[in-house]
Design a protein around this nucleic acid. Structure first.
Length: 258
DNA sequence: ATGGCTTGAGTGTCAAGA
């Protein structure tokens, strides 16, 4: 089983890249963030023609998350239970016996801002609910745009970014809380190249200079970590014309009893 | 130098991203 996450920064603009990537990578499921559209603007027809079912939790202009899957997504959940939130950042479903939680975590804008406080509250609410979700679904994956670079090695310039948004200690603590619940960072289960990143700023030729951050993650529950066979970042779509500023992150699992 | 691109909304130019 192959699953992936990709912040596409507008699905309307990026649909050709997404369809090409589905055809090339052949994932069983692809989780998208920042679709930036309501259901009316969502390309259900094109995605179905590519052989995938799609579920969407949409919003105009900002946010919006979707799961595309070969199999019909079951037990679909939209939004985080127990947390009042107008922003569409969560969609979850069971695909092939695996529970997928697709998340577009808040950016936070600047440490100490109102949006930063919202981010920390949002992360705490997610952790609270995930504890229950892991009891219900031992084969659980939390994947998406975390907007957190968990360690200094996930940052091109750790000195410049120290204490800044995406790297601040409370954000990293929130990431470690997921790990403390038993989740493993699938990417770090395997040997990886140094300076591996999943996002690069559009400005300053940041991609060409590999000035990025690793903020998109696939976290797997203990029951799934045992079956994880590979995890990597596919930089190819970031090299295309009019790319998303994020690259897909992909994890593969050995087949196991459902 | 708090900028530099990109997107959406919308027709001015700004908010937001990370």
């Amino acid at each position: 089983m192959k699953i992936a996450t990709w912040n596409v920064n507008s699905l309307k603009v990026r649909l050709p890249h997404v369809l090409d990537w589905l055809a090339a990578a052949q994932p069983d499921a692809l989780c998208l963030q920042e679709t930036k559209t309501e259901d009316g603007g969502f390309p259900f027809k094109e995605i179905e023609a590519a052989g995938y079912r799609a579920i969407h939790n949409g919003q105009k202009t900002y946010n919006g998350v979707a799961i595309l899957a070969r199999a019909e997504p079951a037990d679909v959940l939209r939004d985080l239970p127990g947390f009042e939130d107008a922003q569409k950042r969560i969609i979850a479903a069971t695909v092939g016996g695996v529970r997928l939680v697709c998340a577009y975590m808040p950016n936070g804008q600047a440490v100490g801002s109102d949006k930063y406080e919202y981010k920390l509250k949002w992360l705490a609410a997610l952790a609270r609910w995930l504890g229950e979700e892991m009891q219900r679904h031992p084969q659980l994956v939390l994947l998406g745009d975390f907007n957190i670079a968990p360690e200094d090695r996930d940052v091109h310039d750790p000195v410049a970014w120290q204490g800044q948004i995406l790297c601040s200690e409370p954000e990293r603590e929130a990431f470690r809380k997921f790990v403390g619940m038993g989740f493993a960072d699938a990417f770090r289960l395997f040997e990886q190249p140094e300076k591996s990143f999943s996002w690069w700023d559009y400005r300053m030729m940041a991609f060409r200079r590999n000035q990025g951050l690793r903020i998109d993650h696939i976290l797997v529950s203990p029951a799934l970590a045992a079956h994880c066979r590979a995890c990597g970042i596919d930089k190819a779509p970031r090299k295309l014309e009019r790319p998303s500023d994020h690259a897909p992150v992909v994890a593969e699992f050995a087949e196991f009893a459902k």
